[in-house]
Design a protein around this nucleic acid. Sequence first.
DNA 1: CAAACGCGGAATGCACGCGT
DNA 2: ACGCGTGCATTCCGCGTTTG
Length: 264
Amino acid sequence: MNERIEYLKKKLIEKKEILPYINLNEKNEYAGWVSDFHIFFINGENMKLDLSDKSDLFLLFVLASAWSRSGAWENAAFFVAYLKYHGYAEPEQWRNTVFVEELCAKRYEEADRIYEYCIVKKKTRKKLAFRSDIYDSIHILACNWDAIGEQLEKSNDNNDFESFIYFMRTIEGLGCKKRMLIKITLILRELRCQKIYQNIPGYLCCVPDRRVVQACKKLNIKLPVVQDTKGLISASKRLYEYFGELYDIPPFAYDDVMEDMTWI
DNA sequence: CAAACGCGGAATGCACGCGT
DNA sequence: ACGCGTGCATTCCGCGTTTG
């Protein structure tokens, strides 16, 4: 393994306090993105998802679907905070199409009001937007919620989470074009980080998004191109070989961590 | 000759500036 | 204040090209 990769890992750990999305535990393993959103509600509570809680688990899937869309990542993060704060996190609610339409109709004002109850250290952007098409996706998630839960249990019992990835791929309407792809491993990563299921292997938990792919090019890591489930699994496997319990975070953070590197 | 690769663009909804 | 056009962001996919 080349020294640039070791340097990146070392720097990442050094900068973990500065870069808010790097949530590491005391062993310097990744604690998961949803373990801390770095958003505080006005009642003093910290925005996070406890995945042993049923409705928080639902919100993890909502986040993954919202993140499968284009647009600034803050939009998806604050959208989930909005749902959590208002208690809009029950699959039963989202199966009701009237509820979905009503919420979708007031998405502009709700996005504008977010900073009335969400406090952040540093505002990364002033304007937030809740995409209209994710509301339908949440409805689809809610309608498939029982089957998703069964598939999770089955995968854990059979020690086969690849079939969970394939299953998620069969659901239409959760992603950018049609179906969710690379954010499926994000779901598994968060579940593994919070130790909700015992049999999720680490190599199914790395997310080869655009940022990660570009950093890997700079690091001379040959990442398989992700265009289907098979490619996703092999890319995730490769990332895990290099970064282990830090998953995809080092290449994700590449630009932020290596900005002061002078010896490329 | 099938499988893997990789580029470019479709898809989608919002941001932003401009003119009226 | 409002509508319009252009550009942005990101994922996912089609299809031609390379590779073993």
